[in-house]
Nucleic acid binder design. Sequence first.
DNA 1: GGACGATTAGTGGATAACCACTATAATCTT
DNA 2: AAGATTATAGTGGTTATCCACTAATCGTCC
Lengths: 209, 209
Amino acid sequence: MKYTAIVADDHPIFRKGLVEILSGIENLEIVAELSDGLQAYQSILAKRPDIAILDIEMPGLSGLDICRKVMSEKSDTKFIVLTMHRDKNFFNDAMEIGVMGYLLKDNAITELISCVEKVLKGEKCVSRGIENLFELSGQNNMPELANLTATEKVILKLIAETKTSAEIAQLLFVSPNTVDNHRSNIVKKLGLEGKNSLLKFAIQHKELL
Amino acid sequence: MKYTAIVADDHPIFRKGLVEILSGIENLEIVAELSDGLQAYQSILAKRPDIAILDIEMPGLSGLDICRKVMSEKSDTKFIVLTMHRDKNFFNDAMEIGVMGYLLKDNAITELISCVEKVLKGEKCVSRGIENLFELSGQNNMPELANLTATEKVILKLIAETKTSAEIAQLLFVSPNTVDNHRSNIVKKLGLEGKNSLLKFAIQHKELL
DNA sequence: GGACGATTAGTGGATAACCACTATAATCTT
DNA sequence: AAGATTATAGTGGTTATCCACTAATCGTCC
């Protein structure tokens, strides 16, 4: 018996590679090949494939959006999502939604094949490199940042917006001295040194704040 | 007559797509397929292909590094580089080095094929989407930045790397006073105000420097 | 040769940020 | 109740940056 699959990815060359590899799996037939989220969603509803292999980052609907929508309509389709970026939020979302496979786009071809086979059997499958990523991101996501108090984080954010201590003091209705004191504490907690080191740090890391 | 090609990209699935598409070009034969920069470099030297299709972002040597090295050894190999990111610096570097083709990884398959054909004929070929990128970046690229002198730009870059005036002075073998003077001039030209305004500006705009 | 711009270097002053303390009140923990 | 943490506020000192000047040197263009 042949399983059916649909593939969606907005990068044509990468999609070509995907399709080529999946075509090599004997008991699998690709019934549709899409390049954007909405088309992929409609195609899944129309063809009800056994498995859908979706890029997360796509125009229109993301791969995760598609999973969410399809799964809310009691479908038996199983999902494997692909992503370029080792993003913890994506992974967490994917796990919550209940996708069966989570792969990094730079993974080996053998890993893709074995993942598809596992998922078809009903097993879950997560990329190698993701667990490492997890440990890593837990580590390099600045454990120091977690040590900061709520007020300190607020101030750090405002610093990242290139506000001066005087401006921050006005915004928070406290004395400039207090802000200055918080700055000192933050600098100490983060282990920074030198003039403007806090400003440099804040601007460079404002994405994680 | 058949042309020879080598392909290098560290993403296995994408590389598979690339190779698959290029195999469809009749007068082209792929003589090697690599997954890292150093291997690709050595392979090009060994096989002297007519054309090399290289990812820019690769472990070890980047695609551009490879071009630079190979071209300094009077090779006839023509280069097409691929990149995921619409990065102006990459493009400028590529043009300086003299690559024949510059493609974005999300480009269409037809564009890849026509680019290879053009380059084999000796024509240059740049991705659609790149010029747009250029106009865009050309517009919002701060006309004031163009007013800066070469030395001022160097100093601005170093400031963006969060170097202090004293450190910059040491690096450039000039007096700290001179660096300070340049800072003043830059601040004036950019119309900045307030303490650390230059540092803030430099860090926030370092991508365009 | 003269005008101009760029680079170099200096003086002097203002201020924001850093750094190290002390200290009080409020809150939370044990 | 005692202790810890947090937020608040202040004093005093150092320093990097900013700002406004002046000035010498060098190369380029007319």
